[in-house]
């Protein structure tokens, strides 16, 4: 009971961080990823090259390292020399990292659309931006939903990495309570919280997928 009395309020506070990082990352990373995917497909070699390098760095280094680099290392960078606050660094690292992963998923989704769809839109006199928004993107979203869902669930668990910058998420709450009472049970309870969040998301994602099943 003592454990619960300490764990519940700390978990509620921790949830604000966990869900905050999760939501901010999704809201910014998904639209940005569509833009990055388009830039990656650009015929301009400089643009596609810079985008490919960004994706390579983000996917090629651990998110933990990126968090540390942006928080601790950024003010050592010449010219920029700016120190981000703890949460600025967390949001920037998560958004940059997840944008790269989502962008590759969107790029695969865009590549999977039949060329005939673009040609049909062209002969009907539609512009490229209109074609992308009204014809291509809705089909891409349907195709990438399962892969995006996977990443969304990974993101929930990745939020636990914020401990490295001293932010108090739900895992940190479990660790603190566990240290005070020398008990393992807080970890079990927090595992159940993660499972509950993932259960809600799984249901939500399957509902979205079902909504897109109106056509084949």
């Amino acid at each position: 009971m003592k454990i619960l009395n300490m764990l519940v309020p700390m978990t509620i506070e921790g949830l604000k961080v966990t869900l905050g990082v999760f939501l901010v990352t999704l809201v910014f990373a998904i639209p940005l990823a569509v833009v990055v995917a388009l830039l990656r497909r650009s015929n301009n070699r400089a643009i596609s090259g810079v985008t490919a390098t960004y994706i390579y760095i983000m996917r090629g280094t651990p998110l933990l390292l990126q968090l540390m680099f942006i928080f601790f290392g950024f003010h050592f960078v010449p010219v920029i020399g700016y120190a981000f606050s703890r949460f600025q660094a967390i949001y920037i690292a998560f958004i940059l990292n997840y944008t790269a992963y989502f962008a590759e998923i969107f790029r695969g989704g865009i590549n999977s659309i039949d060329l005939g769809q673009y040609e049909a839109a062209k002969v009907l006199g539609m512009s490229k931006p209109f074609t992308f928004i009204k014809v291509i993107l809705p089909q891409v979203i349907k195709n990438v939903l399962p892969a995006i869902g996977n990443e969304v669930i990974t993101l929930v668990k990745d939020t636990s990495l914020v401990y490295i910058l001293g932010a108090s998420d739900i895992l940190k709450a479990a660790k603190s309570v566990s240290n005070v009472y020398s008990a393992f049970s807080p970890y079990v309870m927090i595992a159940l919280v993660y499972l509950a969040i993932v259960a809600v998301l799984t249901k939500l994602l399957s509902n979205i997928e079902r909504r897109y099943n109106y056509y084949r």
Binding site: D114, G116, Q117, E119, A120, K122, V123, L124, G125, M126, S127, V135
Partner: peptide, 18 residues
């Protein structure tokens, strides 16, 4: 494209409906 589309249309072999 919009000027061309209003003068000539094409029905594709595979239809290419959306």
């Amino acid at each position: 494209n919009s000027r061309v589309g209003q003068e000539i249309g094409l029905v594709f072999q595979g239809y290419n409906l959306f």
